[in-house]
Structure formats: structure tokens, C-alpha cells
Simulated assay, not measured.
Amino acid sequence: MLIKYLCLYGIFAQKSKIMAKLTVYGTPLSTYVRTVRLLLEEASVDYTLKEIDIFTGENQSPEYLAKNPFGKVPTLEIDAEVVYETPAITDYLNTVFANQQFSPSEPLLQARMRQIITIIDNYFYPSAIGTIVIQRLIVPIRGGQPDEDKIKNAVAPAQKAIQAIEAIAVSSPYLLGSQLSIADFYLIPIFIYLVQTPEYEVITAHTPKLRTWWEQAQQLESVKKICA
């Protein structure tokens, strides 16, 4: 009976994968948009990317706010349904289209995955992307001068966050072992930008596992395609 159920579930999942019309709304440069797209690429799911330019305020247009009242990216549209917030999107996609492939089956590793994601959201992203990357990469592009004090003050919080991830990561070769997980999809886009700053060396100086992880992760074809 269990085998029959699993077979039926597999057939249903495959049909859903083929029949569903998926649209990802967001800025291609956004780390969170890239998180969702990496999962979709690794799951071999067809989707359409609808660019929403956060730099020109397109995310605050009435049309977009009708889909996501907070004006953030990404937003996922599945046929007539809309899902926003990256954790909700990745959980949904992983369940419906990837048969939980990107979530460990072992409860402790599941908890570790959610730990890493939460550390990234609450502690690493704000300092690494919200301050260091913005000041080093975005501000100069717009003709401004980086705020060195802001950058200096962001280094210690970024170090603390990445060292916390280092302490619980397996990194053999991926964050939680031999299989990619949603946690990898969260961290990869941040490293893509952080390595372009001089602060990367200081921040990751005491995270050898994550340096090794990064050497492997950046070779993935999905990463080359989405984060080039």
C-alpha cells in the first residue's frame, strides 16, 4: 500500500511539475530572488522570470503591491495563486516540485537547515549585504562614496554570524552534507557578492569549512547560470 501511495505521489508531483505555470517576480540581482531561482534550476522546473526593478521603485507600483503588499522580492505566482516571502516560496517549491529533495530527512539536520537560514536572514544578510556589499559595490556605482564607518561596524556582526554557521555546518561538500539544501541556496548568493569586497578575507578568515564549501558551490552549473 505504501509503495502504491509513493508511486501515485510521484506521478502527481510530476504532473504538477509539468502542468503548473510558474512566474517569479523580482530583481535578478537580488540574493533572495537568486535563492528561489537556484532551487528551481536544481529541480529542473520551468518558470518565467518577470523583472521587477527595486532600484526604480517598480516594486512599489500598484500592480506589484496587489501581489505583494510589502513590495519586496521575490514573489511567486503559480497559475492563479500568489506566494510571497522566500521561506514560504522555497518550502512550497521544495515540497511540490522537488519531493523534499532540498530538505534533510533527519530531524536534527532539518533543524540545522532552519538555523542557518534564520542566521542568514537575521544576522548575516543585514551586515554582509545590507551594509558591506551596498557600501562597497552599489554606492560607488551610483556615484557615491562608501561609508567606511558603516562598513567597519558591520564586519564584526558578519564575522559572528558566519562563524555561527561554520560551527553547525557539515560542509562535505554542501552545508548539510552530500546533498544541496535550501540553506545552500540562501548562502550562495550572498557569497557571490561578498567575495567581491576586501572584507571577505577578514570575515571568513576563521571559517575554513565554509571556504572549502564555497570552492565547491561556485562550480555548480546553476550558480554559473543564475549568479553570473
Results as ranks from 00 to 15, higher is better:
residue 207 T to R: 03
residue 185 F to H: 02
residue 169 A to L: 01
residue 5 Y to D: 13
residue 69 P to K: 14
residue 98 A to I: 10
residue 190 I to P: 05
residue 123 Y to G: 05
residue 22 L to T: 05
residue 94 N to T: 08
residue 119 I to A: 03
residue 74 P to V: 06
residue 159 Q to S: 05
residue 53 D to C: 07
residue 76 L to D: 09
residue 87 P to G: 09
residue 172 S to G: 12
residue 5 Y to S: 14
residue 220 L to I: 12
residue 143 G to A: 01
residue 201 E to I: 10
residue 17 K to H: 12
residue 100 Q to F: 12
residue 184 D to A: 03
residue 49 L to I: 06
residue 119 I to E: 06
residue 16 S to R: 15
residue 19 M to W: 11
residue 187 L to H: 00
residue 51 E to V: 11
residue 192 I to N: 13
residue 19 M to Y: 12
residue 25 Y to K: 07
residue 219 Q to M: 13
residue 135 Q to C: 03
residue 141 I to T: 09
residue 111 A to N: 06
residue 101 Q to S: 14
residue 168 I to M: 02
residue 87 P to F: 07
residue 185 F to E: 01
residue 138 I to P: 06
residue 113 M to Y: 00
residue 185 F to A: 03
residue 107 P to N: 00
residue 111 A to W: 02
residue 84 Y to K: 14
residue 134 I to Q: 13
residue 127 S to R: 06
residue 43 A to E: 08
residue 132 I to K: 09
residue 181 S to F: 00
residue 19 M to S: 15
residue 226 I to A: 06
residue 61 S to A: 06
residue 202 V to T: 15
residue 84 Y to L: 14
residue 83 V to E: 09
residue 66 A to K: 09
residue 194 L to V: 09
residue 139 V to L: 08
residue 184 D to W: 01
residue 218 Q to F: 07
residue 190 I to Q: 06
residue 195 V to L: 08
residue 22 L to Y: 06
residue 53 D to F: 02
residue 183 A to H: 01
residue 210 L to G: 11
residue 91 D to W: 07
residue 27 T to G: 05
residue 109 L to N: 12
residue 163 Q to M: 10
residue 165 I to D: 00
residue 148 E to P: 04
residue 226 I to T: 11
residue 184 D to I: 02
residue 89 I to Y: 01
residue 146 P to F: 04
residue 178 S to R: 14
residue 200 Y to N: 10
residue 36 V to E: 05
residue 126 P to L: 04
residue 137 L to W: 04
residue 120 I to W: 05
residue 147 D to L: 01
residue 36 V to I: 14
residue 195 V to F: 05
residue 148 E to L: 15
residue 155 V to G: 04
residue 214 W to T: 09
residue 175 L to F: 00
residue 45 V to I: 07
residue 116 I to H: 06
residue 140 P to D: 05
residue 162 I to W: 02
residue 172 S to V: 07
residue 45 V to C: 02
residue 228 A to D: 14
residue 140 P to N: 05
residue 164 A to F: 01
residue 2 L to H: 08
residue 116 I to W: 03
